[in-house]
Write a protein that binds this DNA or RNA. Structure first.
Length: 938
RNA sequence: GCCUCGAUGGCGGAAUAGGUAGACGCGCUGGAUUCAAAAUCCAGUUCUUUCGGGAGUGUGGGUUCGAUUCCCACUCGAGGUACCA
């Protein structure tokens, strides 16, 4: 009876599907456990062996938790809106929904072959109207909310309106647009409805605002930063300019502090937390106002070092700063305008790449130092960014490297305000251990004291206030794309109106072309049926727009991260059509217990989803404000590319070992042509491409042809992609699962080399053989021996420890050791082999089901209890002590474990090998750690 | 530049409270079985050696009876980030 994985795996995959073995109920006496994977984008290329790595790990964990008595939810779905499908549509005219559906089908087939314990009844697809209905709904919730800094949470806009009606906006502390005019309750009452709506828009958590985008006139579209290479579009190399557009934004900045604080209570990888912390970029400092000499104007600056204010010798504004044109003197006008113009032409990327060049222009105007009253020059320089802080800095050249370089370059003053510090070569930017000098009342103070004192003074004199600033920007939420969620928004007199929940979803309209319109409108501008009828409450033809009852709908769509920001909660109750999920479901499942996915989402998906969760928490929709207790980043699996070497100028290939001094050109060969010994299947290579049909091959003496190997990213173009389907076909899903784990630690990146899989494959065959006697499946009911029990319990303990530490690679080794030992012991006993099948099940579920079934069980092994570890089986009476001399192990000695230190020392010192090692010397010291080691020093 | 992670045989990796470095697997070498091959099984496989031993976890220091493990400095590699006032 052979181990026939093809038959076994097909049989159990069918069984699981038919019996819905992994369907999780929303009610259970068991404790809940929610295991989540980052759902995939279904690309046309299908899965390669790198993709399932995290899914296998989470599946092992989910299956283990089921054995431990948990009600486990392990769902899967598709992040099915996205650019590739849209680009394919532009090129071929195929509707993205059609290609996406086909890709999803391929993915599902591939995933099914690997034997995951997914609860497919909970599948979600972000591009499914029944799903994005709720993405639209959350958008509306955000629109109807404002952030009250006093209660420190999001509240309904109605509470804001009540305040406006009672006392105007002066007392309101809100996260809102800058520069909102102060109005009284009386003013509010007198405002027109339109004026009121315009004001409210400045407070809403999602709002319209003018934002700068990378506009590419050549392509008629907006580009993401990573679509721009060297200042031109990646596709086609067209010019890109900065352009302001009215777009939806999300007020994530309102949550900056809470997003930061929340990191303290979740068990996520430190590097990931660090990058979110850095991204949020909290800095403490002060806002200080500088009056402009001779103008009724002031420059506000944010500074983290208000304690160095006496070191200010000039100011620098961003070239885009609104005051620039106002304060520039006639003499400087031309120079300033030229500089401003030159800057606007440089893309942000160019400005960033060019760190070395120092440039700037004097405006001719002066600011008045708020403490000394001295006149300081006002410059503009492109090292100051309009988008951070106030777009202006107070320059303290002695304390800031960039200010120092700028001052040096333009010959500006560099006053020293640090006690006993030499600043003739470089600025001094350290805070600790430096005392302030030449600064009036700050003299002699250290950083901390000076900060306190100066902020107190600044506030007392009314020239500013202490402030915490964040690097985090509000997130632009509009995309000029077709294949994304449409907004549930129409425009009345240019003001956005939300569509009522009962009429959702607003379904993506059909268009002729997926490109932007000729007049530069987003692709939805091509739709002819895209207007909202407020009487019929449905989408109607654009021809009917009368701006009285029928209005134009929003033409932008939502970004990729919209659909992924709440999908984990929707899994709890995915078919609910009345609510995003029932209260009952969310109160049962609460949050994600384990989330596995790639670290590339650190500051995108993983930050935005935390933001939405906090918002939903504020609104009482979800019970917890952090949705994932524990998160693990899986590492990348890289490919091991194969190279053949062609002699330059000839159609002749030379085996790697014979290259010598020959001038050769390395060429990627498909890794499927190469065996485990790095030998090329020459015929397969010849047949690969016509140009190689007649190629000559110089082989090694034994007739083999060796290739070179190199680790690179797995990619089609490098011909190193390995398809999991092929592996499942050749070795089976259980081998694939074991091998992916066996490669190395989950969180590290590691290279894939298919040849290694034979190790886990023969392990499975050996495991199978344990249950076979004389070619037939059979186990005995004999009592187990001490050694057999020891192997079993050692394995139980190690595997449980490994799973707790997400160290799945070492579990596989442990299984191998167990099977090797049981084979050597010729163990064929049910009491050992039955629990063994359960322990292996999370890793190799198909073979485990088959063995369990053949042992006479009628239910799935996935429901079986995990064997209980009994430590008494591991108790030892003897220990083979390593005897070290000066820390180096020299020989071993077998001793009973109950000996005292003195007894051990006496035996060891009397040993002949000890005498040989010491060669007559007297040991200075003998260290004995009972049960561990003996070390003789001397 | 900054932040983070990493570096152990020919290769992937193990050593989970500072205590036998190289578990387990691949590959390789030799042998058994076979007409032969596949498959399977057995033995060996860090380097070096005068076969006693000696050296050895990126480099250089330190702490310790003892360091892959802790501390300091550095080199190289991977990922992220970008003039953040």
């Amino acid at each position: 009876m052979e181990y026939n994985f093809r038959e076994i795996e097909a049989k159990w995959q069918q069984y699981w599907a038919e019996n819905q073995t992994f369907k999780a109920e929303n009610k259970s006496d068991k404790p809940k456990f929610f295991v989540l994977d980052m759902f995939p984008y279904p690309s046309g290329a299908g899965l390669h062996v790198g993709h399932p790595l995290g899914y296998i790990a989470s599946d092992i964990y989910a299956r283990y938790k089921r054995h431990k008595g948990f009600n486990v939810m392990h769902p899967q779905g598709y992040d099915s809106f996205g650019l590739p499908a849209e680009q394919y549509a532009i090129q071929t005219g195929q509707h993205p929904a059609v290609t996406t559906a086909a890709n999803v089908k391929t993915y599902r087939k591939q995933l099914d072959k690997i034997g995951f314990s997914f609860d497919w009844s909970r599948e979600v697809r972000t591009s499914d109207p029944n799903y994005y209905k709720w993405t639209q709904w959350i958008f509306i919730q955000l629109f109807n909310s404002w952030y009250n800094k006093t209660s420190d949470k999001a509240e309904d806009v109605s509470t804001l309106v009540s305040i406006f009606e009672a006392e105007g906006n002066e007392t309101v502390k809100a996260a809102c647009d800058d520069e909102i005019e102060v109005f009284s309750a009386e003013d509010w009452k007198n405002y027109s409805e339109e004026e009121k709506q315009n004001i409210l828009l400045k407070y809403r958590l999602t709002f319209l605002s003018e934002t700068e985008v990378n506009w590419c006139p050549g392509l008629g579209t907006v580009l993401a930063n990573d679509e721009i290479v060297n200042g031109v579009s990646e596709r086609g190399g067209h010019a890109v300019v900065r352009k302001k557009m009215m777009q939806w934004s999300m007020r994530i900045t309102a949550y900056a502090q809470r997003l930061l604080d929340g990191l303290g209570k979740i068990d996520w990888p430190q590097p990931l937390k660090d990058s979110q912390t850095y991204w949020i970029g909290r800095s403490e400092g002060a806002m200080v106002s500088f009056n402009v000499d001779g103008f009724d104007a002031k420059i506000d600056v944010f500074t983290t070092r208000p304690d160095t204010v006496y070191g200010v010798s000039f100011m620098t504004l961003a070239p885009e700063h609104e005051l620039v044109s106002k304060i520039t003197t006639a003499e400087q006008k031309e120079a300033v305008e030229t500089y401003v113009k030159a800057t606007s032409k440089r893309s942000e990327l160019e400005r960033m790449a060019d760190v070395k060049t120092i440039s700037g222009v004097f405006t001719g105007a002066y600011a008045l130092h708020p403490f000394t009253g001295e006149k300081v020059q006002i410059w503009i320089g492109d090292y100051v960014l309009a988008s951070y802080g106030t777009g202006a800095v107070m320059a303290v050249p002695c304390g800031d490297e960039r200010d120092y370089a700028f001052a040096n370059h333009f010959g500006l003053d560099i006053p020293n305000i640090f006690e006993g510090i030499d600043i003739s070569e470089e600025a001094c930017s350290v805070k600790e251990g430096v005392k302030i000098a030449n600064s009036d009342f700050l003299n002699g103070l250290t950083y901390k004291k000076a900060m306190k004192t100066i902020i107190y003074e600044i506030e007392k004199r009314g020239i500013g206030y202490g402030k915490i600033n964040y690097r985090l920007r509000d997130a632009v939420f509009s995309r000029q794309r077709y294949w994304g969620e449409p907004f549930p928004v129409y425009y009345k007199n240019g003001l956005p109106q939300m569509i009522d929940k009962e009429y959702l979803p607003i379904v993506l309209p059909e268009v002729e072309k997926y490109l932007p319109t000729e007049d530069g409108k987003p692709p939805l501008g091509n739709a002819t049926v895209w207007a909202w009828d407020v009487v019929k409450n449905e989408v109607v033809s654009n021809d009917e727009i009368n701006n009285e009852t029928i209005f134009p709908l929003e033409l932008n769509t939502m970004p990729g991260w919209a659909g992924s920001s709440q999908y984990f909660n929707r899994y709890m109750d995915p078919q609910n059509n009345e609510d995003i999920f029932s209260e009952e479901a969310v109160n049962y499942w609460q949050d994600v217990d384990l989330y596995i996915g790639g670290s590339e989402h650190a500051t995108g998906h993983l930050l935005y989803s935390r933001f939405w969760q906090k918002f939903m928490f504020d609104k009482g929709i979800v019970p917890v404000d952090e949705y994932a207790k524990k998160l693990i980043n899986q590492g990348m699996i890289t490919g091991t590319s194969a190279f053949v070497y062609r002699i330059e100028g000839e159609n002749k290939f030379v085996s790697k070992g014979l290259i010598g001094d020959l001038k050769v050109q390395p060429i990627h060969a498909d890794v499927s042509f190469v065996n485990g010994s790095d030998e090329l299947d020459i015929d397969a290579f010849k047949n690969w491409r016509a140009e190689y049909n007649d190629a000559e091959f110089i082989t090694e003496e034994d007739g083999t042809f060796k290739v070179g190997r190199e680790v690179e990213k797995m990619s089609k173009s490098k011909y190193n992609v390995v398809n999991p389907d092929q592996i499942c076909e050749e070795y089976g899903a259980d081998s694939l699962r074991l091998f992916e784990m066996f490669l190395g630690p989950l969180e590290q990146s590691k290279p894939w080399k298919t040849s290694g899989i034979s190790g886990v494959y023969s392990f499975l065959k050996k495991l199978w053989k344990l249950y076979i006697v004389n070619g037939e499946f059979s186990v005995t009911d004999e009592a187990p021996t001490k050694d057999e029990l020891k192997t079993l319990h050692k394995t139980i303990k190690k595997v449980e420890d490994d799973i707790a530490n997400f160290s799945f690679n070492t579990s596989v080794s442990t299984f191998m050791i167990a099977v090797n030992e049981l084979t050597a012991l010729k163990c064929n006993k049910r009491t050992i082999l039955e629990p063994l099948a359960v322990i292996i099940e999370p890793y190799a579920p198909h073979i485990a089901e088959e063995l369990w079934n053949k042992l006479g069980n009628t239910t799935s092994v996935s429901c079986a209890d995990f064997p209980i570890f009994e430590p008494e089986h591991l108790v030892e009476s003897e220990k083979e002590y390593p005897v070290s001399f000066n820390g180096k192990m020299r020989f071993k000695i077998l001793l009973p474990l109950d000996l005292s230190k003195q007894e051990i020392e006496d035996i060891v010192m009397a040993h002949e090998k000890t005498a040989a090692q010491l060669q007559g010397r007297t040991p200075k010291k003998v260290i004995i750690v009972p049960g561990k080691i003996i070390n003789i020093v001397g």
